[in-house]
Amino acid sequence: MSITLYHHPFSRAAGILWMLEEVGVDYELRWVDMQAGEQKAPEIVALNPMGKLPVLVDGEAVVTEAAAIGLYLGDRYGYGTLAPKVDDPARATYLRWSLFAPSVIEPGSMAKMAGWQYKPGSAGWGTPEEMLSAIEAAIGDRQFLLGDRFSMADTIFGGTVRYMLRFGLLEKRPAFMAYAERLSARPASQRAEARNVAVMKEHGIQPPG
């Protein structure tokens, strides 16, 4: 078993479980007690200087940042299926919305929640309404971001949308809610959720929210 995920169910590592279940590879979880500050331990900082989760180790490869991990797993273990090939035009849409999640949805939602004052033309995430309209355009009336074809982009973009909806950080538009429900119905998503819950029980912690 070469893949190790440094994990805590209250971190973005929780969503990486879904990615791993989708690609169907063997992996092990390395518990990191965030309440005790173990994410700042020398072992973790040596892998990720930010001292944050998730950290995924696959043999000699070390990957951090949730979107990067999703793209890595797609190319490494689902190339041509969960990740469009480089000569497939769908690759453009795949990359576009995968990177939209961390570069627009996350900071845009944080800016709105915190009441940041900024010039929309100077911020990559624009205005909250532009962000919401872009999310809605990405989903449209399609099953997934690539139409009827599920991809790792849905774990990155869709995982972010679903998390934001769960904690009231995103407007609950019908298209968003329906998309999140489709993602939650996937067997891999349900297996990941069950494993996160099992880790919580094992370590005596309560689920958030």
Rank of each mutant, 00 (worst) to 15 (best):
S11Q: 10
Y77H: 11
N48E: 00
E193L: 15
A178Y: 03
E171T: 13
A101K: 01
K201E: 15
I3R: 01
S184A: 15
L71R: 00
V86E: 09
E136V: 12
P54R: 02
G51I: 00
S151D: 04
G115H: 12
L183I: 04
G80C: 03
M152C: 06
D75N: 04
E43W: 07
F176S: 09
L146M: 14
H203C: 14
L29N: 10
S103I: 00
R173P: 08
G115L: 05
A90Q: 13
A198F: 12
M200W: 12
A178I: 11
T4F: 10
N196G: 15
M50D: 05
D33K: 12
Y118D: 09
Y179M: 10
D87R: 14
R142E: 13
G74T: 07
Y72D: 07
I139C: 05
F150E: 04
V199H: 12
I205R: 14
L20D: 01
F167R: 13
L17A: 03
V62C: 06
I135G: 03
T155R: 05
P187T: 07
G78M: 00
F150Y: 15
H8Q: 11
V197C: 13
M19A: 01
L56C: 09
I139G: 08
S151Y: 03
A114Q: 14
L29T: 12
S151N: 05
F157W: 08
G37M: 06
Q143N: 12
Y6R: 07
Y72M: 02
R149N: 08
W31V: 12
S2N: 07
P84Y: 06
T160S: 06
A153V: 14
V63M: 01
G78W: 00
Y163A: 14
V45K: 08
P187V: 12
W31S: 14
G168A: 09
V199C: 14
L132T: 04
V25M: 01
V62F: 03
A83R: 00
T155S: 08
G126C: 01
A192Y: 04
N196R: 15
G209F: 15
P84N: 10
Q143L: 06
A111Q: 01
G78V: 03
E60M: 02
A13F: 14
M19L: 02
L82P: 04
I3N: 05
V199R: 14
L29Q: 09
A198Y: 15
P107W: 00
G204Q: 15
S189N: 10
A185P: 07
L169S: 12
A188G: 03
I156M: 09
I16C: 09
Y118T: 02
L146K: 06
Y79V: 08
R191Q: 11
G15Y: 09
P107K: 04
A175F: 11
I139V: 15
A180T: 10
E65A: 02
T64E: 03
K119N: 13
R76T: 00
S184L: 13
L47Q: 03
G24Y: 06
H8E: 07
L82W: 11
L53W: 09
A36T: 13
L71N: 00
L165F: 13
G74Q: 02
G124M: 05
F10K: 15
G168D: 09
P107Q: 08
L82D: 03
V57T: 04
G70I: 02
I44C: 05
A83P: 04
